[in-house]
Structures are given as structure tokens and as C-alpha cells.
Design a binder for these strands. Sequence first.
DNA 1: ATGGGTAGT
DNA 2: ACTACCC
Length: 548
Amino acid sequence: MEFSDELECGDEGLLSPPHTHQRTILHLDADCFYAQVEMVRQPELRDKPLGIKQKNLVVTCNYVARSQGVKKCMWLKEAMEVLPELVLVDGSDLTHYRRFSTQISGVAQSLTHRVERLGLDENFIDVTDLVDEYMNATGSSDIEGHVFGDKEPVSMDLVDPCGCGCRERLVAGSLVAKQLREQILKETGITVCAARSIPGIGSTTFSVLKDLGISTVQELQDVPLKLLRTKFDSETCSRLKEVSNGIDETSVKKSGKAQSVGLEDAFTKVNSVAEVKVKYQILLERLLKLLREDGRVPVSIRVSVRKFDLAKRFGHRETRQTSISSSLFPDGVNNVGENTRSSLMKTVMGLFQKMVDTSKDFHLTLVGVAFNKLIERVRKGKDISSFFGKRTREETTETYKYTTDNECKRLCVPLSPEKSSDGHESIREFEQINMDKLNDKSLLTSEPLDPILELESTDCRRVDNNTEDSDLVLKGIDPEVFRSLPEEIKQEVLKTHACPDRKSLTQTPSTSPVKTSNQAGVISIEKSGTIESNGSGHSGSKQLWAPR
DNA sequence: ATGGGTAGT
DNA sequence: ACTACCC
Ligand SMILES: Nc1nc2c(ncn2[C@H]2C[C@H](O)[C@@H](COP(=O)(O)OP(=O)(O)OP(=O)(O)O)O2)c(=O)[nH]1
């Protein structure tokens, strides 16, 4: 977790115009997220080198594996060469990760509604109100202590040269951060840490910067604008310059419900309509399940393919979309009948054939389907009057039929900032935190990654299904079609139809599994070398992207 | 690459 | 419909 507040205000040049430093924003990032989820689900994986695999890719791995040379997004083959004893768990189905992710954001949302999600494992949390309340309640002169980095304590004396009050904000904010991390660990078993990134600077931007010879925050600050302009438009340049000086006025935007919900399946080759149908059918079934959890009704569907293309083989997808008749979900999304399913499948295949001429040879490497516009459930008949009748005045703007989430958001902007009752409880808890007294140490530490245990090797997991002996009745799939399918596809069909969820998430982490769990988070300060750390910025004391 | 997302054009 | 960006 990162606590973002102005750190660069020691630079005199930045003091005009004066910063008021009014916001306090936390930036949370779960460590090796998918791997951690699997370790919570299967604690025996804890001390083994664990890789999360999707097809031929190891998308992430735990720190045990990282210490042995496994990298994120490494080819499976390469990873197994580097570390033959790597234990693999398939992470193609994001269901569990999605659930943990929702849970993590939920803990943050119990503090404030001002929570913005980024991907499954990052959250921006605007805790300004909580911090203000805390400071008003205690009097800022009573707020003393240290802010902790992930590993090293950081002296507050060194981070508040500007005297605008941000020092107290930093301390109070770090207390919120600490408590939030502990609560997330308690409720989900997941440890979160300082985000080591600056929003808006991901791997793409970083590699462009690198080509310009820019790898550190300092270098980004110093680079001539003209040089930047050769690679970025002027708006991006301004943003880059600002964030390099720790300035980011972007507001934390509440992430309501998703704008779209979709699923993809990638593979090396699919070239028959029968296979395509099966792929879409499986995706659609899974998607309807997701939809049920979402609760909204889809009004638009999008189908995508990726065609094999040796020449211009950048990750190009084609998509086609169409609207969905509201009559397909007369009772909402909870019970979707066979008619609706087959109608959706027809729609999907219709869209598919707009992209692929199935009378000729084709070679696909991915199919996908998404509901890309969703609305709150439509009430009908009697329900609609009671629906309207029960609403309070403030809520009535929500009740338009067929209002999309976006439109709804615009209409529902609250007139006054909300205060959660949770906030007060939290404030009380802050007061119980006993601040450690710690020696001031150098701010400019670049610590190595955590020490990681050496471990014994373990077998890779493998599942072999035999499809010959099964006479399963497969929902919605013609047995003759099934028999005609390639063996791989059969396997997949059997897997998705025969394999219910394994474990529930109710277990709690037995012991605090990881090292840093009692520390608040974070102000990371640049050592000199890499772009890995820098704290700064009022809304965004972030570092540049840190490849690890 | 893989399996998702967001926003802008 | 597609692009560029994010995780
Ligand atoms: N399939 C796929 N998944 C990704 C990609 N980037 C990130 N993820 C997933 C896997 C990660 O566990 C999760 C969070 O991404 P992060 O970039 O924060 O990495 P992670 O948390 O695994 O490791 P970290 O400890 O932050 O270095 O999102 C990607 O390009 N493809």
C-alpha cells in the first residue's frame, strides 16, 4: 500500500503556487495476487515455489518462485527450465480472483465509498475525510510518529519541510493504511503492499521512456520537454512531467459496477464450426453465471475472434456487437431459460459469421464473448409501482427504466459528501494504535526483495481425463457433435461440465503468512538508481513503473 | 502471449 | 469497431 502525499515539497521550486495538500489517498496493491489467492485456498502451497499458469504462460508466481528466477508473464517452457520443481496451478478461470478482489475492495469501501479499482488487485482510496476527522478530533499537534515504508521506517521529520500540514496528514493517513491492511489480511488472508507504480505509467509507457534513456523519476524530471514530445502527445507529456514532480490532481473515481463483463478463451488452433460452437457455448454458460452475480440485465452483446495471421500478428481482435432484446430476460438474470440460452447462442454465432467466412478454411486463436452494456433490472407490472413508491426523494433519479449504469451515475451524484458510520469506529481505533519509536534511518534505502526461503522441489500437477469412457449427457451439446470434436475440446467440455467449485473461501489464514504485515504503508523514496521508488505527489505519490 | 478491464476516437 | 492503455 502506498500512502500518497506530497513529499517533494522540499523542492523550493515546487512551492509556488503553494500546495495546499488537501487530499490523502492510499494506493493498495496485492502482492503477487493470483498466487496469493491460491496459497490462501491451498495453504500447503505456501512454502513451495508456485506459478499461476494460463495456457502456455506463467502469468505470475509467488515470491518463493521469484527468488529462484521465475518472472511474471514468462513462457511456461522457460519457467520450467529455470525451475523444474515449480508447482503449477491453472489460473485461466478468474472466478476466485474476482471474488477475493471484490472482498478486498469491500474492506476499503467500508471506510469510504471513494474507492477506485484498477485491475483486480489495485485500489485507490481517498481517505481525506477520515484523515480530516482524525486531525480535527486529536489536534494535529498530538499527531506524532513515524510513517513506515514497506521495510524501513521513514522519519516524518524528513518528509515535511513545507509546513502545510501534510506531515500530519501523512501520519494520520499511514494509520488508516495500516489498519486497512490489517483488516484486509484478517478478512481475506491477502497481504497488500505499497503500489510501486504511478498511475498512467504502465509497461508500455515505461518501455517508451526507457528507449529515451529514462529509467528514474529524476531522469523524467530532468528530460527536456522536446525529447518527450517526440514520443508522446502534449497532454501525456504534461502528465508525465507533473507526476515526476509528484503532482497528480486526478480525482479518485468511484468504481461502481463494471461497464462490461466478458470472457475469452485463447488456443493455438480452432478451425471447425463445431469447435467454435462448443467454445462459445462454454463461455456463454460461464458468462451467464457471472451475470447472475452481477444482477443486471445485458442489453448488448459483443463477440470477438482473433484470427491466426503470421504477417501482422499483433494481438488483433475483431469484434461484432448487437443489442439484446429485453424480452430475453423477462425475469431478470437469475433464472435464464433454455430458450434464452439458445437464442443467445444464435446471436453469438450470427455475429461470429459476420467475421469469419465459414465456407472457407479459417484458423482462430481466440474467441470471446462479453456483455458490454448492462442495466439495472427492469421492474414490470405491479412491481414497478411499488418500486417507485418506495423510493425516497433522493433516490428517484435512479428509477428511470433502462437507465444504464453510466447514466445512473451521472444522475445520482450526491449533493453532499457522505459520511460512513464506519468512519467513526475506525477513528476510535486509530487512537489505540501505539506508535513505535524508531530510529531515523536513511531515507534513501533501496532494499532488496524480501528474503525467501529455499525449498524442496515438488511435483507439478497434472490432470489426465479420459474422454473415451464417458457417456455424459452434456447440456446443450449434441452427442454426435461431441464425438466429432478433437480430443482436446472433448476434454475441455468434460472438465467444465464435471468439475464444480472445489473450496469455499471461508478459511482464514492460519498464521500471518508474510513478513511485512504489521507495517503501515508507505512512503517509498528514491535511492538514485532505479525508477522503483519515489514518493511524492499529492494525489499520487507514486513511482514509475517498476519491472520486477 | 493470457484473461481480463477502462476510456477515447 | 477499433485503438491504446491498465492490471
Ligand atoms: N493474464 C494476465 N494477467 C495479468 C497480467 N498482468 C497482471 N495480471 C494479473 C496477474 C496478477 O496476479 C494480477 C496483478 O498484477 P500485478 O501486475 O500487480 O502483479 P502481481 O500482483 O502478480 O505481482 P506483484 O507482487 O505486484 O509484482 O493481475 C497480464 O498481462 N495478463
